[in-house]
């Protein structure tokens, strides 16, 4: 999709919000709210969007935003959904919006509880791979090898990025998908698909962060595209925890990991050993994903 083709009629985000230039999270929410339409309620946990949304009575979005404490998003979403049902608002889509900290770390228990209960809402994680609102501290979504302010030079993030999609798939949620801002049509389509599904839906959006990642604000889309092209962040969806489907565009040219990391200052001190280790992790996870997709294909053909 070309930018010129994006329909600007249904924008839910106001200009003049508080995001940094080139913010992937602002773009992600712009696309997702546009995809879901006007009848939505956004539950928002502590994250960059707590600031982006503006200081009340100002607001950045044309829908109700209910702020909530950091670990609580999954549970507050459950209450909002059930409360709206009790008051007859069955058609309203409830979206819980959290960053990677509010999803992978401090919000994981509430997320797991809500997923297990199959609560009827969409949980969206915009993943900028660290605690960016507080100034770039390590989260469990930070990739191996990255430098953060709690892993400063000569340290680097030890351990792999937590695989939140496999965790959600293990909860057998009706619908889970990955998306990123370089592919807005794919992102919007997944949100529209999610909106039609009943029960718990999870969307994992990779949202580049220029000040945190050390990228040029003009490179947000390119970095997002390379994340997919290198296999670092494959685009796919999974239904009921078993039905896996790749959605990577067929015409995408594959790119090398060093191309992707080279645009980001947080990987500046990455040596070959660490690069190989990260490459190994990416290959292993991509192969597992291919196996999961192949299994579905084989079963369908039987």
């Amino acid at each position: 999709m070309k930018i010129a083709e994006i329909n600007r009629q249904d924008e839910m985000i106001y200009p003049g919000h508080n995001a940094c230039p080139g913010c992937g999270a602002a773009l992600a929410v712009r696309y997702l709210t546009k995809a879901l339409g006007k009848n939505i309620v956004l539950v928002l946990t502590a994250s960059c969007w707590s600031i982006i949304s503006g200081m009340p009575p100002l607001t950045a979005l044309k829908c109700p935003i209910l702020h909530c404490p950091f670990p609580s998003a999954g549970s507050v979403g459950s209450g909002v959904r059930r409360g709206l049902n009790a008051r007859g608002h069955h058609d309203t889509t409830v979206v819980v919006l959290a960053g990677d900290g509010g999803t992978f770390d401090i919000g994981l228990q509430a997320l797991s509880g809500a997923a297990q209960r199959n609560e009827d809402y969409i949980f969206v994680c915009y993943d900028n791979e660290a605690y960016m609102n507080t100034g770039m501290q390590t989260s469990s979504a930070t990739p191996f090898g990255a430098r953060t302010n709690t892993a400063p030079y000569p340290l680097y993030k030890e351990g792999e990025k937590k695989d939140i999609m496999q965790i959600m798939a293990a909860h057998t949620v009706p619908y889970a998908a990955t998306a990123t801002v370089a592919f807005p049509a794919d992102l919007e389509e997944k949100l529209k698909t999610a909106q039609k599904v009943k029960g718990f839906r999870f969307i994992h959006i990779l949202a580049p962060c220029p000040p945190g990642w050390g990228t040029e604000s003009s490179d947000t889309i390119e970095v997002s595209r390379l994340a997919v092209a290198t296999g670092f962040f494959p685009l796919y969806e999974v239904r009921n925890g078993t039905n896996w489907k790749l959605t990577v565009p067929a015409d995408i040219k594959s790119a090398s990991l060093s191309q992707y990391l080279g645009l980001q200052r947080r990987f500046k001190e990455m040596d070959d050993r660490r690069l190989n280790e990260l490459q190994h992790e990416i290959n292993r996870d991509y192969q597992r994903l291919l196996d999961q997709v192949a299994k579905v294909t084989a079963e369908t053909q039987q």
């Binding site: 549970s75 507050v76 459950s78 209450g79 909002v80 059930r82 409360g83 709206l84 228990q109």
Partner: peptide
């Protein structure tokens, strides 16, 4: 924590 958070969300809707 989830119990009170869930109550919090529902109470927000009235």
């Amino acid at each position: 924590y989830a119990a009170l958070a869930c109550c919090n969300g529902a109470a927000a809707t009235g």
